[in-house]
Amino acid sequence: MSRIVACYKWVAEEADIRINADLSVDLSKAKGKISDYDRNAIEAAVQAAEALGGKAVSLTFGTQKAKASLKDVLSRGPEEGCWVNGEEADNADSSVTARALAAAIKKIEDVSLIICAEGASDTYARQIGPRIGAILNLPVITSVAKMTFVGETLQAVRKLDDCLQTVEVELPAVVAVLPEINSAPIPGLKAVMAAGKKPVTEYKSADLGVDLTPKTQVTAFKGYVMQRKNIILSGDVGENVAALVAALRKEGVL
């Protein structure tokens, strides 16, 4: 049975990121989550598997922390999970991530389609899908807003800056989907219960036989803080509106 691979990244919840006074960034208190748009990629894989009569498989490259993602992702529908476990994921750049994922995909049999999201919520680099395609020498379609399958042919609608483009490709292929492609449902009780029993394959990054040294060198990683007046009014609405109008007038914007 053909497999549809959904790539997802376990990222830090950006709302939990703390910026210290010296603008250094503290990620230690941030909870993990499946990157927002990857939830749509996972759902797209589940739907594609149904359309193609195949099996959706989830794939992530992450540190030990990503272990917590397995139950979460499998409750969203894929039948098997695959995890490339390596501490290198913490400072991987796009080239390392794409290489690691491509190597893992080679180990999965009968892959007919690889689905990434447009961009991850931390990097939002929008590179991994096309890079995986290049490494595996597979055709790539990015900015996908809609997919339909006729036999082994995928027809995709791409949303580009100034046009909607319809393209066709014979599988296997790599696609990067936009979040608009579907609305990823919140998993129900049975799905969550079933997730714990689905099979998971774990690869150690070192066993993939690829170079895991980043090509870019990060020289600074600094938080951004907006300095604003933060005058917040609560209580009586009439008074607040009057106070606001007075303030805006004083500021010279009215």
Partner: peptide, 29 residues
């Protein structure tokens, strides 16, 4: 134990005056 997070139990299932299970969203258990 099978732990399921992010799931709110909405109701109890009752049969012949006995509680026999729960309802969460679409699912019964």
């Amino acid at each position: 134990a099978l732990l399921a997070c992010g799931i709110k139990v909405d109701d109890l299932l009752e049969e012949n005056g006995k509680i026999v299970g729960i309802v969460a969203g679409e699912d019964e258990m």
